[in-house]
Design a binder for these strands. Structure first.
Length: 118
DNA sequence: TAGGTGACGCGGT
DNA sequence: CACCGCGCCACCT
């Protein structure tokens, strides 16, 4: 299993106007205890330039990776361009903008990984 | 090879 | 809300 390739594959399905979390990506990729590695991979650019890293926040809705973008407010501006409301404290209301993936989607990705051989 | 690190997460105080 | 501790684990020294 190639964790990083899986992350890249899932990233293409995060809906515009929604955000996901490190933990949820790890879960969908089959490693529920590897949320830290998702952050690590993004920080080190291991996923790929086309991956929408700005749509990933931590479990509390905070833009914990904002400092790693080209500009400190880059992630915020990209999200607002998506129609996502970012609060003053650099936080997002996950109840409203969180991507709540379903069991069906989890199974979809499981099958996708199988097809892709990753 | 042994330890330190961290875009994490959860539970407790 | 703010801390804090702990479990987690691929990567780096």
């Amino acid at each position: 299993m190639d964790f990083y390739k899986r992350i890249a594959a899932v990233g293409k399905h995060i809906p515009k106007g929604k955000v996901t979390t490190y933990g949820q990506l790890a879960l969908l990729c089959g490693k529920p205890n590897n949320a830290r590695q998702v952050g690590y991979a993004l920080n080190r650019g291991r996923i790929g330039k086309d991956f929408p890293a700005y749509r990933v926040v931590n479990g509390q809705g905070y833009l914990s990776g904002a400092a790693a973008f080209e500009a400190p407010d880059m992630q915020r501006r990209l999200l607002e361009a998506d129609g996502v409301e970012v609060m003053k404290n650099n936080r997002i209301d996950l109840k409203v903008f969180g991507w709540h993936s379903t069991i069906e989607e989890a199974e979809f990705f499981y099958d996708l990984f199988l097809e892709m051989g990753i």
